[in-house]
Every structure is written in C-alpha cells, then in structure tokens.
Design a protein around this nucleic acid. Structure first.
Lengths: 253, 253
DNA sequence: CGTAGCTTTGAGTGTTATCAACTCTCGTGG
DNA sequence: CCACGAGAGTTGATAACACTCAAAGCTACG
C-alpha cells in the first residue's frame, strides 16, 4: 500500500530525534543556528506528539504552554463565530510553527486540528523564550517567523478583501504548490488534505463555489481534479489568475 | 479653534522627549520594563518624526531600518494588487507599533501613509533586537506585540471571510471605539481620519456600500454621522451586530 | 468664491450564497 | 465479495447582497 497519509504531503526518512538531523531544519526554528545552539534548542523539545486525523492539538482558550513545529502531516486552525459560521484561519504544513498567536494573551485564540495523521514537535514556550535571550540568532529567527505569519495574514486579507472567488482559489492552489515545493515535493502534483468545506471556510466561499470552480478549472485545462488529488497543468495561467493579471484577456468559456 | 487634527484622536499634553514621560508607555514597547531598562530603550529612539497628512512613512519594498511607534495621529498601511485594486491592511493609532511585518524579509511588504498630521518615534530595529537580548522583558513585549498583530489579523480574516457588510462596519466602529477608549478618549464619540474609500478598502467593501451603511445605521438610530464625525448611540445593538448576534431578531427598518 | 475631491443616493446588474437533489467514494458489515 | 449507508462532492435553479455606473450635493481649501 503506497497510499500513506503522511507521505501525501512529503516523505521524510529521518525519523531520528534531534533537530540536527531533521530535514525541516532549514524551514523551522533552527535555521541559521550553530551546531551547539541547535543542541541547546534540542534539549528543549519536550516530546514528539502524534496526532490522528481529526484530533485537536489545542482548543480556543487553552493556556499557552508550548509552540508546535510540524514534522509531518497537515493541520488547520479555526476561529469561531457563535452561529454556525466557521473561519479557517490557516493551513499548516511541515516546517511551519503553530501557536505563536497565543503569545499575546497566553491563551490560544484558535483551535488546531489535524487534517491527517501528523507529527509535531512540542516546544515549551517559556524555555524557548529564555533560550532566545541567550542566542540572538534564535531570537531573530523567532521574530522572523512571527513577522512571516503577519505577512501571510496580510496576503490573506488582500485575498479575502479584494479578490474574486476564482482568484482566491487559484491563489490558494499556488500557495500550496509553493510550500510543497519548498518541502521538496513536486510543485504541480499534490493531494489536498482538507475537505471542500474547509477550503471554503478558509477562502470565504461556500463549499459549492469551491467545487464548481475546481470543476471549471478542470474543464478549462488549468488543473486536473480527481477528488482531492490535484495536478496543476497550466501554472502560468493559474498564476496570472491568482495575481489578477487575467482581468482583460479573460477566456471564460 | 478647538478643531485640531491630532487632538481629534487624542490630546496628549506631555510632549517631553523620553518614553519615561510618555502617556503611551503603557501601550507601547516599554510596558512592564523597569526605569533603567526604559532609559536604555530611550537611548535607542533615533528621533521623533513628524508626518503631514498624506505623507508616506515608508513604501513597499523599502528596506527595514526602523520600527515606528505612533505618538499622535493615525496611519494606514496598504498592500497593492497590480490593477487599481488596493487593500488597506490596517489602521494604526497612537501607542501602536508599525513595521513589524518587515522583519521577515528585511523589506517593508506594505506602504504606510499618514491619514492626518502624525508624530512617530523611530526605533532602529537592529539596536532594538540587540537590546531585547539583554532585557528579557523587552523581548517578551516585542513577541507579545507581534502576537497581538497576528491575532488582530486573524480577526480581520474572520471579518472579511464570513461577515456581511453590515457586520463588518459595526465591527470596525467598535474596534475604533475600543482602541480610542484605551487611549483615554471617549469611546462613543470620535472623528474618522480616513475616507470612505479607505474604510471600504479595509473592509473589503465598495465605498458606496460603506456610505449607504453609515446612512442606514444613522437612520436606525444606532449611530450619528456628520461627515467623518461619528457618535455611537447604541453600543449594545452595535456590538450585537458586530458579533453576529442579530441574525434572527433583525430589526431592518 | 470657485473648484476639486469627498460623500450621498439611485438604478441596474452580477457574482456568489442558498436550497435542493443527485452521485460518488469509501469503509463496514452481512 | 457484494450491498449498504454515510459523508463528501457535484451540479442545477433561484435569489440576495453588494458592486458598478451615474449624477447630484456637500465640504474644504486655495
């Protein structure tokens, strides 16, 4: 059975413990640190935690104890409005850091749920903060990661505020592609780990709209869709749509 | 003439230089620092910079040299999509920190423009980072501010993704009210420093929609609008609208 | 006091949500 | 091994909310 949840996103061979041996090192916290610094960071990592699909890593209101670096799998974070409406605030892939939005109030302002079997590194926050004062490079890396999150959120604001449904979906597909490529995967072939509903809740669209759009992109030869398996067939046109560069020469069938 | 641009947002009497004497201390970077620590921080602040209405503090792509703490006035940050569409990614009031989204790439990913005459403290970032390694409290405060920004962005994501135009505007008004109150101003009476266009570009709405909605809120007795002068007359109902708690008992006139 | 920009208001349109039915997929148990 | 059922996804019809275009009123500044 080559069909493996975790492998769908990226296959990582080194299950060895230490950050030192982790393929994700270049994306994660230790980027740019010396070997001795990484060892110090290593000692902090409390344990690796396995999550099954649907399992919650933390919930809204939980106290902030640790940040989580994703090793394998995929998670989503969700905020809540009282009435049924849900907003998915983000999808998180290996090498990305979860929980930094809790630093402000010492409580998690959103919930994090595994979209597939996932493995995360738990990093006790007080220890991390303490270590960061001793290792300037680590502090800088922490600030950079938080800043990147802010930039990414700002991009989402742009997306939700000013883009059409078509542009949002194209944007989202390109984003997955880019991030997967960074992880060493094929940038034009991947399996979505989230439902159409999740995708819609992320993009501010009804799940039906997501479905219709995927079908349309498929019909137009931009992508190929088989359930959650996606192939990007025409990245250039997709990119053009995502960046709004297809508003005049719009070849809408 | 009591009508003063800066005073419209908040009247600050202490124009004295040091953070030590700054009314905004409790909102800004020095929060929770000891006197000696604040003095150290003080020595960093390069100069206070005055901005006229419409003046740019920095533009997309400018290298990150400093962060900016707002003393008086108000600014907006804007991202850009090629074709005319603009997204206002945030409005910034006194006590708030500008530029932290540039840490990730050492370049400003958005532009910042003064909405009225404003005064900002310029904080050279490398020095700040350096000092933060020496003062754990400062590092923590920096992380907290960045985390707060992430939380606020996530709230905007919710707003843009799942809220109706009505809810967005109510939300926005309540946000201004809350932030102004924190600054010591009256929470139900304020003057918007931005145009309907800016408001629309922030909320993901057409300026006409913003205008219509303000008129409707006015007619319904929720607020009073005279140009940019706003009074919140029924905060409770406004809050209910903002949080989506008025979806059944909707008293649309 | 005139002009330019901002704001309001109106009419018509379009994109996307909603409601609804049907199909597909996959896992479970007979 | 096949049938069944539940959840996920697709597709269609209809309607609403917010956009666009347009014109007139207002404000503020030179």
């Amino acid at each position: 059975m080559p069909k493996n949840d975790a492998a769908a996103v990226i296959s990582i061979s080194s299950i060895k413990a230490a950050c030192k041996n982790c393929t994700l090192q270049e994306l994660c916290l230790p980027l740019g640190l010396t070997d001795t610094d990484i060892s110090a960071l290593d000692r902090l990592i409390k344990r690796r935690r396995m999550l099954k699909k649907g399992e919650m890593l933390y919930r809204v209101g939980d106290p902030l104890n640790s940040l989580y670096a994703i090793r394998t799998g995929a998670l989503k974070t969700t905020g809540l409005i009282e009435d049924g409406r849900a907003q998915v605030t983000g999808f998180y892939l290996p090498g990305e850091l979860l929980g930094i939005d809790a630093i402000n109030s010492d409580k998690h302002p959103c919930s994090a749920e595994a979209l597939e079997s996932s493995e995360v590194c738990e990093i006790p926050f007080p220890s991390l903060e303490d270590l960061a004062t001793k290792i300037p490079g680590l502090q800088h890396q922490l600030l950079r990661i938080m800043s990147r999150e802010i930039v990414r959120d700002a991009e989402m604001l742009m997306l939700l505020g000013r883009m059409t449904a078509e542009e949002r979906l194209a944007s989202c597909l390109m984003s997955f592609s880019r991030r997967l490529e960074r992880l060493g995967g094929a940038p034009e072939e991947f399996k979505l780990s989230m439902s159409r509903q999740d995708l819609g809740d992320f993009l501010g669209l009804a799940l039906e709209t997501v479905s219709r759009l995927l079908s349309r992109f498929h019909d137009e030869g931009l992508i190929s869709v088989h359930g959650r398996q996606i192939s990007l067939l025409d990245m250039n046109r997709l990119r053009a749509i995502a960046t709004g560069n297809s508003r005049e020469n719009n070849a809408s069938a």
